[in-house]
Simulated assay, not measured.
Amino acid sequence: MIFLDAAAATPVRREVLEAMWPYLSGEFGNPSSHHSLGDAAAAALAGARDRAAEALGCRPGEVVFTSGGTEADNLAVKGIALARRAADQRLDRVAISAVEHPAVEESARYLQRLHGFAVDVIPVDRYGQVTEEALAAALRPETALASVMYANNEVGTVQPVARLAALARSRGVPLHSDAVQAAGWLPLDVRALGVDALSISGHKLGAPKGCGALFVRGRTRLEPLIHGGGQERGRRSGTENVAGAVALATALSLAVSSREASERVADLRDGFIAAVLAGVPGAVLTGHPAERLPSVASFCFPGTSGESVLLELERQGVICSSGSACAAGSDEPSAVLLAMGIDSAVAQTAVRFSFEPSVTAAELREAAAAVRAAVGSVRTLGAAG
């Protein structure tokens, strides 16, 4: 099997398992307990926070551990917008890009539905990028928060986050960025990026599912979503997942220290894209041709069904996806591709290939040959039908 769906999930790294194992076994204490087991858990949690902060270029107190990227996005969008409006009732709008992950979009729609916020959708160009002009047009004096993802989970397009954050800051608007897909591939120094909040998720980095983090810049107002005992400095109550925090911090540190793989994988990605475009008549690369994640190659194959191509590829031993794994059970065309101006019928032929850092040239050569065969087979069957 050739696994090319790393944007959905990655296998847990051995180093991560070894780091978290003590806190799933002997060191099982509650970090809020005032005894030796609790103290050991608290020390492990503090160490994980320190390592995560080092990887993100921020202070430990600016890291909130969560259950994953979805919770981190929800906490950023809802938490910042609600807190800012509580301080100033005029701040009743949020601006999100047209290609956001559902965790961001649905959080904004929740604010609209139950709290009376207006949602301004920032358009993207045909490559899925937000321009500074588009963001400027969406920002208003009433905007409580803007959210633009760092790198798109479906097509891999990378946004000019630092420039967008600087623009938002000049208008007095905090900027949140979903960096779930960017982590491990792109620089995550939040000071250089200039963002006020940034979300990451462990299972994209070689940590288990169910752990993530949100960077929140110091002094940024944040209304908690989960209330209780006041853990995480009152920003996210509940007994902390110590093993998950250790796992996330370990995986994040490993990913940051091994980012040299990005250039190698980008070269392999470009070769794979060229082979698919040369070998499959009518194939269309989606996303930005250059400003894209090293790990993502995404296409539309007009005249096919994306799901049929996926099934045929799996039969040939290649595992990939039709886009986001997060829109559970949806057979609608991708909202991301529609926002980029791609026709609805063509959008339903989308296939995404996403790579681990360990991917090889041989695997991608074999995968490109399988794509040619799979698309040809599907088109032949479609013509016969």
Rank of each mutant, 00 (worst) to 15 (best):
S170K: 01
E27I: 07
R264F: 07
G287L: 03
H227R: 14
D125S: 05
A40H: 06
A207S: 11
G385N: 12
A369S: 13
T157C: 02
I122H: 11
E223A: 12
S36K: 06
L222H: 04
L311F: 07
G194Q: 08
A373H: 06
G79E: 00
A283Q: 05
R109S: 14
E133H: 07
L338V: 00
F3S: 12
R269M: 13
R236A: 10
R85E: 15
R49P: 12
A362P: 00
A297G: 07
R379H: 06
A384S: 08
T250E: 07
L364H: 02
I319Y: 15
S295W: 13
V130D: 00
V265C: 05
R140M: 13
A362T: 13
F353W: 10
F28W: 13
D120K: 01
A278G: 11
A261Q: 14
I96G: 15
R352D: 11
P289C: 06
P31I: 02
L338A: 14
D88A: 00
E314Y: 15
V246M: 14
E240G: 00
T360S: 13
H227L: 14
A369D: 13
P302R: 02
T286R: 10
A76R: 04
V173G: 02
W21F: 08
E105N: 15
A40S: 07
N241S: 12
R315N: 10
G202F: 01
E105Q: 15
A6S: 04
R13Y: 03
G303V: 03
G212M: 01
T143I: 03
V130L: 03
L293T: 05
R49Q: 14
R269Y: 09
D50S: 09
Q129M: 11
A144P: 11
G47M: 09
A44W: 05
D125A: 02
R126V: 10
V180I: 06
T349L: 05
A261S: 10
L248E: 04
Q159Y: 05
L37R: 14
E132I: 02
V12C: 06
D50G: 07
G38Q: 05
V195G: 13
V121W: 00
D196R: 09
A166E: 03
A48F: 04
I200Q: 12
V318Y: 12
V119N: 02
V346P: 07
V180L: 03
L45Q: 04
E54P: 08
I80D: 03
Y127Q: 12
C58Q: 10
